[in-house]
Design a protein around this nucleic acid. Structure first.
Lengths: 375, 375
DNA sequence: CTGAAAGCGCTTACAG
DNA sequence: CTGAAAGCGCTTACAG
């Protein structure tokens, strides 16, 4: 019995001298078991190195101690950090994590979620490719938490940052430092998050009485490979931008090399999303700290509460995670239209001021509300 | 039947007018089914939107279409990229990915692998915390592929880079540029990969007739938070290093800010592992391109072959993935003991030469053998 | 080429 | 507090 094969519950029950059902009760921490009986069963379990079979439990019980996570791409630094904090919390709670990348393909996203449902995941955390991507799917009572982007699905919960407000803040920051011609680089505005960031940008410009030049609005950069072309074109304009905003980390990772390549490191720049080395570049990069660890942690926490039925189902407002701007240098550069001043402006790394991440200007949650200032 | 509930195989069989077993045969692509019968079953399946139950299949068949992946931490940029390529390949092959971080805790690592085995994963890919971490585990015939670090487990396969040779290359590169006092920063040498890199460093130093100063060898940096202290101490030495090597990406992400902070950006530096922005820093960072995407892809490919029985089991030499040095600036700086020359040395970002990743000096696989030059 | 039976290892009602 | 029966949805031998 204990020789080569894995022990099953029947073996445990046999050794403990109880019925299989009683052994099952101990396994499931059912309180209606006599202390002595429980002790005998537990002893048998450890003696046989018994491990329950997840497939059998899941088949019979109709639920599995696993959670499915769907993201754009796990290779993205922002996403990796997000998933890391989700995994830490869920693992601590005893859940196994199933991970899949949708590559922002809605059919793939839906197929993945369907599979997670089929696998009886206790819940799913989804970075949706669009806010209605899962709306019409029949998933029973599967708890769904959307992360980083809002999802509309009934009975779901979204955990986001205030994209509108943060984009407004980033734009305002550049305006405060004297910029008037501010370019923005993003992926498609069909992504709700991206659209909100554009709206925040527009609001700040309008509030400052600045015209929005369509030539400076580039929402045609699906990923970093498109950035160099866009940046080059921007600086080829008769009246080029003196500052740029990038609306996600991937694009930021394209903007920095592009500015270096075209010799425009004196351009004002605020990046959405912090990234490794941002503080060590020349100039150091001012970012909106989008805190993936915090967003992921809150999403995991929220899902666990849903799974445990501790959260009222029904309509729920998005949870808005606080975030803020970390000034590091690039966002505080004054306007400078003349590229000839490059060498003198971009100082050596050694003299650059270093801003630890923790010193970021934190916005309080109170300062940003769910739909803050959007209407 | 098709109203609210999910269809099961019995429903499909009923609608098609065949036995449940025949429906099962169609599902499993058993060729011994008459074409007409198969067509009827397939039609019923799509009509009912039938989806097989993974738990039931797994329970009865004894295997699941999933693969477990265990890594140090999914939040690490190197790891994220590695996992991303693994996931892409496995998803294309129809496998679901279970992902867990061991945080280099051997007990956690073993518990995770045990759970994957219990879940009947078709195979596991493991970044082992030590080469013998899984040696004594009874995992039946579970295919195991180790990635990035060698594992000793019988019947397993390791996919690695030639750490010894690459570290020798990095050190030699600095020596070629005139450095004699070369510091090395790493995590613990109990990690086999780390130890091999130290050995490669020593070999290059010895081959060049240079003394190895124990004060310049810092294997006490578990992660990036320890780097600033170590770097500060190194430069406080009476005879400080003129160049540094960091043995992994996490540490590199600490070294760059540290060098900037202490005003030593003129220090020669070669980083193990490429990272975002390496090319845009001042100076741009010379790296050993450790290609996580390629390593992950080969690991996934190898595992799939094992799963499909296309690979002879038994003793197998590690697969050594080619990698090379990408010169970008920091590794080509001449020795410079005097910090006062900093400002003139570290040029502006605008004049920095930019080396696209693809232009890296690729070493051919032939040039690096499994245990290349180690004996 | 097709089917009736048994069972994978558990948990769910239902009794006592 | 404990147990005997049934069954979750499939696939595995075993027949025909």
């Amino acid at each position: 019995m204990s020789a080569g094969k894995e022990a099953i519950l029947r073996d445990v029950a046999g050794l403990a001298g109880v019925s299989i059902k009683t052994a099952s009760r101990v396994l499931n921490e059912d309180p209606r078991v006599a202390p002595l009986t429980r002790a005998k069963v537990l002893s048998a379990m450890s003696q046989l190195e018994y491990r329950p079979d997840p497939a059998a439990r899941s088949l019979r019980a109709g639920r599995d101690r696993s959670v499915g996570v769907v993201v754009d791409s796990i290779g993205d630094v922002f996403v990796a950090s997000l998933v890391s904090s989700i995994e830490t919390l869920l693992a601590d709670a005893g859940y196994q994590v199933l991970m899949a990348s949708s590559h922002r393909d809605i059919d793939r996203e839906r197929a993945i979620v369907q599979d997670f449902h089929q696998r009886r995941c206790a819940g799913v955390i989804v970075m949706p490719s669009s806010r209605d991507s899962l709306n019409d799917m029949r998933l029973g009572d599967l708890p769904v938490v959307f992360v980083d982007r809002k999802g509309d699905r009934a009975d779901s919960q979204s955990v986001v940052v205030d994209d509108f407000e943060l984009a407004r803040l980033a734009t305002q920051h550049l305006i405060d430092h004297g910029h008037q011609r501010i370019g923005i680089l993003s992926d498609s505005r069909t992504v709700s998050t991206t659209d909100s960031r554009h709206l925040g940008y527009c609001r700040a410009m309008q509030d400052a009485g600045l015209a929005i030049d369509p030539a400076l609005v580039r929402d045609d950069c699906p990923d970093e490979r498109f950035v160099l072309g866009a940046v080059t074109e921007l600086f080829a304009l008769e009246s080029p931008p003196t500052a740029l905003i990038s609306t996600n980390t991937r694009l930021s990772l394209g903007v920095v090399p592009a500015l270096h390549l075209v010799g425009r490191t004196h351009t004002g720049f605020v990046a959405f999303g912090d990234f490794p080395m941002a503080a060590s570049l020349t100039p150091a990069v001012t970012v909106i700290d989008h805190s993936p660890r915090r967003i992921g942690g809150i999403a995991a926490h929220t899902l666990l509460k849903r799974i445990n039925g501790e959260l009222a189902t029904g309509v729920s407002e998005p949870i808005v995670v606080s975030a803020g701007l970390i000034p590091r240098g690039s966002g505080e550069l004054p306007p400078c239209a003349d590229a000839s001043t490059v060498a003198s402006r971009s100082g050596s790394g050694a003299t650059q001021v270093f801003w630890p991440i923790d010193k970021g200007v934190e916005m309080t949650s109170a300062a940003i509300t769910a739909e803050g200032g959007r209407r």
